[in-house]
Simulated assay, not measured.
Amino acid sequence: MKIKYDSEVDVLRITLKDVDIEESDEETPGIILDLDSSQNVVGIEILQASKRIDNPQAIEYMIAPKTI
Rank of each mutant, 00 (worst) to 15 (best):
M1V: 11
M1P: 09
K2P: 03
K2H: 12
K2I: 12
K2L: 13
K2A: 13
K2T: 11
I3R: 02
I3E: 04
K4V: 12
K4F: 09
K4Y: 10
Y5N: 06
Y5L: 08
Y5V: 07
Y5F: 11
D6S: 06
S7D: 11
E8Q: 11
E8S: 10
D10R: 07
V11L: 04
V11P: 02
V11C: 00
L12W: 02
L12Q: 00
R13K: 15
R13E: 12
R13H: 15
R13N: 12
R13A: 15
I14V: 14
T15V: 15
T15M: 15
L16P: 01
L16M: 07
L16Q: 03
K17W: 04
D18I: 08
D18A: 12
V19P: 02
V19E: 11
V19M: 05
D20G: 14
I21T: 13
I21N: 04
I21C: 09
I21L: 08
E22S: 15
E22F: 15
E23L: 11
E23R: 15
E23A: 10
S24Y: 02
D25F: 00
D25E: 04
D25I: 04
E27S: 07
T28E: 14
T28R: 14
T28P: 06
T28Y: 13
G30R: 03
G30N: 05
G30I: 03
I31S: 00
I31F: 01
I31V: 01
I31Q: 00
I31N: 02
I31M: 01
I31D: 03
I32H: 00
I32Y: 03
L33E: 03
L33C: 00
D34E: 08
L35I: 04
L35T: 01
D36V: 10
D36H: 09
S37P: 07
S37M: 11
S37N: 14
S38G: 10
S38D: 13
S38H: 14
S38M: 09
S38Y: 09
Q39N: 12
Q39W: 11
V42L: 10
V42M: 08
V42S: 02
V42D: 05
G43D: 01
G43T: 02
G43L: 00
I44N: 01
I44D: 00
I46F: 07
I46H: 06
I46S: 05
L47Y: 10
Q48Y: 11
Q48I: 07
Q48A: 13
Q48F: 11
Q48S: 15
Q48W: 04
Q48P: 00
A49D: 05
A49Q: 05
A49M: 09
A49S: 10
S50W: 05
S50D: 04
S50Y: 04
S50P: 02
K51I: 07
I53S: 03
I53F: 02
D54R: 13
N55K: 15
N55W: 13
N55A: 15
N55P: 08
N55M: 10
A58D: 14
A58S: 12
A58E: 14
A58Y: 07
I59H: 06
E60G: 07
E60N: 12
E60S: 14
Y61T: 03
Y61Q: 03
Y61E: 01
Y61L: 00
M62Q: 11
M62P: 01
M62D: 06
I63N: 01
I63V: 15
I63G: 06
I63K: 13
A64C: 05
A64Q: 08
P65W: 10
K66Y: 13
I68Q: 13
